[in-house]
Amino acid sequence: MDQILSLAAENLLSPIILSFALGLFASLSRSELSIPEAIAKGMSIYLLFAIGFKGGVSVASHGVDGTLVLSLLVGVILSAGLPLIGFALLRVMTDLDPLNAAAVAAHYGSISIVTFVAGTSVLQSAGVDYEGYMVAVAAAMEAPAILAALWLVARSGGAGKMDAELWREILLNGSIVLLVGSFAIGWITGEKGLAEIDAFIVAPFKGVLCLFLLDMGLVAGRGLRGGAGLIRPGLVAFGVLMPLIGAAAGLSAGVLLGLSAGGTALFMVLGASASYIAVPAAMRVALPKANPSIYLTMSLGVTFPFNLTLGIPLYVAAARAFTGG
């Protein structure tokens, strides 16, 4: 318990969390502070490239075994399975109709790559190693949750629209292409490649992450302000409970697969995080009648801040306790 509290306190006072808190404060207090759209986009490209590249280099250094394939498979199962739990909980805990419950549940099966990046940063600060291929697991967990949500809607008598164009947009969205592509480049070029560009992708990483999270704080604050009327206590409770359930599933997966403490912690982060980029876009096309204010506010305004501040240190401490790492 002491370890969890100590890590939580350390995390809460880290520059990245304080930057997020600053953004949140600025937004909630209606400050005019804003990050230009093009700069925010540039920072997200930088972070995805850096995290993918470093993951690929790690795989090149440590080699590949069957655990990689199993981890990908378990990640897909987790992504498809968590929305089913989320849907059942939402129907019990809230007054959402099946359509909106399925749309919200989809977000909790998919992942937030920014939460994942923040998780890797906390692990690095704590000196905990993790399997580099967790980046690939993150990419594999983006899409299955969307299919699970559409199945839930169909089962409830509704219909989602899933066409070839949407498939292409989901599987080849910019974030996935960049993440998997930079992972492949890192894998191919290995330590030698990293040595050539480490001044660009290693040293500035945390500073860029701080600015990016400042922007995320601004966005989360705007979402909270805009969706405040829609988010009732049952939804807030779900937004905190569901990440813990997802993290528990990730913990089980990591322990069963025999992953390191860092790998298990990242599996927990992936299970706990909720998408706010890929899934909202897919939901707008596939389930246009679902209310975007509900699912965006839930994932961005409730679950993302929870994972960033309290969740990640909790997951890291639990992973270390269960794996002995």
Binding site: E37, V219, I277, P280
Partner: peptide
Amino acid sequence: GNWTRSGQVSRAS
């Protein structure tokens, strides 16, 4: 409702 492009996190919005 109200909507502004500033600070939107995804193209979906």
